[in-house]
Measured scan of single mutants.
Amino acid sequence: MSGIALSRLAQERKAWRKDHPFGFVAVPTKNPDGTMNLMNWECAIPGKKGTPWEGGLFKLRMLFKDDYPSSPPKCKFEPPLFHPNVYPSGTVCLSILEEDKDWRPAITIKQILLGIQELLNEPNIQDPAQAEAYTIYCQNRVEYEKRVRAQAKKFAPS
């Protein structure tokens, strides 16, 4: 494992614990031996107030490669969400998460999670990743928002 990646992720964890947006979660997972795995984080993004996503808490896994922060983490909703920019596998399609697009090593975990929260309610229809959600979003916004509200209710924190 890269010392650069681990040191950056340790800084990220410290900064997150000191200050993070209300309702968001970002925690490194534990290895079988109980030690912390900084390369694999369990996160959760709350649906934004005043949107059909409100009330939901959407679980996301963030996986970092050894060359982080040169390369972005892979962000994957578990379980996958109904959304035009979420692949059926759950992987998020967002330009700041793509090395050859808008990724920059200075982007923080907090910025990534806030960017994904923004994307939930403002899909990028130029870059669809899920045919069904994309089609319904474009053709029947009322039905799309109904499905999103049902999903938010399903993923409401207990």
Rank of each mutant, 00 (worst) to 15 (best):
S2V: 15
S2K: 05
G3T: 08
I4D: 15
S7A: 01
S7N: 15
S7R: 08
R8K: 00
L9R: 01
A10E: 01
Q11F: 07
Q11I: 14
E12N: 07
R13T: 01
K14P: 01
W16V: 02
W16D: 01
P21Y: 04
G23P: 04
G23H: 06
G23E: 09
G23V: 00
F24L: 04
A26D: 04
P28R: 08
P28W: 00
P28K: 06
P28I: 02
T29R: 14
K30I: 10
N31F: 09
N37T: 12
N37A: 14
M39F: 13
W41R: 00
E42Q: 09
C43P: 08
I45C: 14
I45Q: 03
I45K: 01
G47H: 07
G47W: 08
K48F: 11
G50R: 13
G50L: 10
P52Q: 11
W53Y: 05
E54G: 11
G55R: 07
G56R: 02
L57K: 09
F58I: 05
K59L: 11
K59P: 09
K59W: 15
K59I: 10
L60M: 12
R61M: 10
R61D: 11
M62G: 04
M62N: 02
L63A: 11
L63T: 08
L63Y: 09
K65R: 15
D66S: 10
D67F: 15
Y68S: 04
P69C: 03
S70W: 09
S71H: 14
S71F: 06
P72C: 11
P72T: 05
K74E: 15
F77V: 02
F77R: 03
E78Y: 07
E78P: 03
P79M: 13
L81P: 05
H83L: 03
N85K: 03
V86G: 01
V86N: 00
V86K: 08
V86Q: 07
P88C: 00
S89P: 10
G90L: 02
G90V: 00
G90R: 01
T91P: 14
T91E: 14
L94G: 00
L94Q: 03
S95L: 04
I96T: 15
L97C: 15
E98V: 08
E98G: 15
E98H: 15
D100Y: 14
D100A: 13
D100W: 05
K101F: 11
K101V: 13
K101I: 08
D102Y: 09
D102V: 08
D102G: 15
W103S: 01
W103K: 01
R104H: 02
P105R: 05
A106T: 13
I107R: 06
I107G: 12
T108N: 14
I109M: 11
I109G: 05
K110Y: 05
K110M: 06
K110F: 04
Q111V: 14
I112Y: 00
L113N: 05
G115L: 01
I116K: 00
I116V: 13
Q117Y: 10
Q117M: 08
Q117R: 11
E118Q: 09
E118R: 11
L119E: 05
L119M: 10
L119W: 10
N121Y: 09
N121E: 12
N121I: 10
E122Q: 12
E122C: 13
P123Y: 05
P123V: 08
P123F: 02
Q126W: 11
Q126A: 11
D127P: 00
D127F: 04
P128A: 13
A129E: 01
Q130G: 00
Q130D: 03
A131W: 01
A131D: 08
E132W: 05
E132I: 06
Y134T: 05
T135F: 11
T135W: 12
T135N: 08
I136P: 01
C138R: 12
C138D: 09
C138F: 08
Q139H: 11
N140F: 01
R141A: 10
R141I: 11
V142G: 13
V142Y: 13
E143K: 10
E145Q: 11
K146H: 14
K146S: 15
R147H: 09
V148N: 01
V148D: 00
V148A: 09
A150M: 09
Q151P: 02
Q151F: 05
Q151K: 05
A152I: 04
K153L: 10
A156Y: 08
A156L: 07
A156W: 09
S158I: 12
S158A: 14
